[in-house]
């Protein structure tokens, strides 16, 4: 388990005084169908993007709350990674995108019938959002509306 003590002093001081936004009450949806029949979507905060997409802006004050749509059949090795946080070692993620964006694993699970299907688009957000106002008001609801329109039953979210 990683813990806050693994982080640099700068990051630790920031996180010690940061007031996290808490979900209260916690929104909670029971699965509407078994996993082997469910349409599943992948959401990452790894900041991955297609080479043709505008990369995220890691200079933006408070963080870049936008997201990118990634086709679920993409060759993950071709994806760019905009996340440049100094809080963690990125070498593993750069060597194997599945470490933070496990599309290939989910495609295998769909092929084996463990999940009903993989949604046609996965979503990629950026990490390092310290001021989540725009995320909460605009981009997260927009992402939820997109996946709901796709008929997604369940989503798996992966932070970096």
């Amino acid at each position: 388990m990683a813990s806050l003590s693994d982080l640099s002093l700068k990051n630790r001081l920031f996180m010690a005084t940061y007031r996290y936004r808490a979900l209260d009450p916690v929104p909670f949806t029971r699965p509407s169908k078994p996993l082997r029949q469910a349409r599943v979507a992948l959401v990452t905060t790894g900041g991955v993007h297609l080479p043709s997409q505008v990369p995220f802006d890691d200079e933006l004050k408070g963080g870049d709350a936008s997201f990118r749509e990634i086709p679920a059949d993409v060759d993950v090795a071709t994806l760019g990674i905009a996340h440049k946080s100094d809080a963690f070692d990125q070498s593993g993620f750069r060597a194997d995108r599945n470490l933070g964006f496990p599309l290939e694993r989910l495609r295998e699970m769909a092929a084996h019938g463990e999940i009903g299907s993989l949604n046609g688009r996965a979503l990629s957000f950026m990490g390092s959002i310290t001021a989540p106002g725009r995320l909460v008001k605009e981009t997260a609801p927009a992402a939820a509306a997109l996946l709901a329109a796709d008929g997604v039953d369940a989503a798996v979210l992966v932070p970096l």
Partner: peptide
């Protein structure tokens, strides 16, 4: 901060009727 972002996005998905699960390195 990724972990807060994941929680907040998950909350919005749950509100729209999508059940979510996630992974965390920072319990």
């Amino acid at each position: 901060m990724c972990h807060q972002t994941v929680g907040l996005i998950a909350g919005e998905l749950e509100r729209r009727g999508i059940a979510t699960t996630s992974v965390t390195m920072l319990r």
